[in-house]
Design a protein around this nucleic acid. Structure first.
Length: 356
DNA sequence: TAGACGTGGCA
DNA sequence: TTGCCAAGTCT
């Protein structure tokens, strides 16, 4: 018989703290309730990838009201799902979300598999999410390592190897403190700790339940862990977008190719992101260029998007595939943020224009 | 395996 | 203003 049923001293200290201080989040089972719904756990985990709790909240609410079960989600039209995801970013997640829901229905009878390996085989579930769902929704012992856990573990063990080289070392250390029981609570407790106390900047070591267990708190600068490799500078790029407004108040929208930036999303017609300052418009007309361009920052480059507007008659036939969309209902088109801003700028310009 | 892939908040 | 950061995955 094991002496410590709940694993390491670290796990015991952390779980005791979690029992009192766990954050109440919409996708978590309330205290004392049965395990959380695997559909809710999966949906929230995907939404939370590289995304803050605050940003996810309204989207999780909207999705669970509109699609109460994984079967409902699997039956949704692609365009509806993509539009509902608009604004949350990393749109490959939305495409994979639908593919995963459909795989769960088609291959697993509408129930999520309960092992880490089977979960890992589903679209959009990588090492982290498969472990998190296995642990949180199904109570399996799984080593759940996200950026919070990396930070907490790097500090607990004062791991000086820089990321990403430190990953194997950090994972082994996380494994060593993960309990056999309550692995899901342990994972969530580690993430709560990372989000509220063991934060990236200005960690609150004074109130940390693990300060007695922590190697970094005994160093000059606990916040210096984890050590990170320097980042490369992000390039600046230029693009053009065209706001084509018909005399009946409708605007020409296109759908972007499934792969690549903002893949599968509705958008304004646009150039690529390595454009020359002077673009060739899609057709000859009187174009107004909005000044200044829309500035937007992506993960790997920043963009100055020059927006050009024109009016066309009812007889105008744009080249290529697309659809006319009422400008008054542009908010319902599900434009990603970049194009939503371009649309705002264009509509403001058109209004000012009409006034003069 | 390193780069592609969004967005908003904060210092 | 700029850079960092937030429950990563895919290729």
């Amino acid at each position: 018989m094991r002496v410590e049923m709940s694993g390491s001293k670290i796990a015991r200290d952390l779980l005791a703290h979690y029992d009192v201080h766990a954050r109440r989040l919409p996708w978590r089972a309330p205290p004392g309730a049965n395990a959380a719904d695997p559909y809710h756990v999966w949906l929230s985990e995907v939404m939370l990838q590289q995304t803050t709790v605050a940003a996810v909240g309204p989207y999780f609410e909207k999705f669970t009201v509109r699609w109460p079960t994984v079967e409902d989600l699997a039956a949704s039209a692609d365009a509806d799902l993509m539009a509902a995801w608009a604004g949350l970013g990393y749109y490959a997640r939305a495409r994979n979300l639908l593919a995963c829901a459909r795989a769960v229905v088609a291959d697993h009878g509408g129930r999520f598999p309960d092992t880490e390996d089977a979960l890992r085989a589903l679209p959009g579930l990588g090492a982290y999410t498969a472990a998190a769902v296995a642990a949180i929704a199904f109570g399996q012992r799984a080593v759940v390592v996200d950026a919070n856990v990396e930070r907490v573990v790097a500090r607990l063990f004062a791991i000086a190897t820089p990321l990403p080289a430190a990953r194997p070392e950090i994972r082994a250390a996380a494994d060593s403190i993960t309990p056999d029981l309550r692995a899901g609570d342990f994972a969530q407790a580690m993430m709560d700790l990372g989000a509220t106390i063991c934060t990236a900047r200005n960690p609150a070591c004074g109130i940390c339940p693990l300060r007695q267990d922590c190697a970094a708190v005994r160093t000059a600068d606990p916040a210096a862990f984890p050590v990170k490799a320097p980042k490369k500078a992000k390039p600046h790029r230029l693009g053009h977008a065209w706001w084509i407004e018909r005399s009946d108040g409708q605007v020409w929208l296109v759908r972007r190719p499934d792969k690549g930036l903002l893949g599968g999303m509705r958008a304004l017609p646009s150039s690529d992101w390595n454009a020359a300052p002077d673009a060739t418009p899609p057709f000859v007309a009187q174009w107004q260029t909005i000044d200044p361009p829309v500035a937007h920052v992506f993960t790997h480059f920043s963009l100055a998007l020059s927006v050009h507007t024109t009016h066309v008659g009812l007889d105008h036939v744009p080249a290529g595939a697309g659809e006319w969309w009422p400008r008054d209902r542009i908010g319902e088109a599900g434009l990603p943020t970049l194009f939503a801003r371009a649309a705002d700028a264009a509509m403001k310009e058109m209004t000012d224009d009409a006034r003069n």
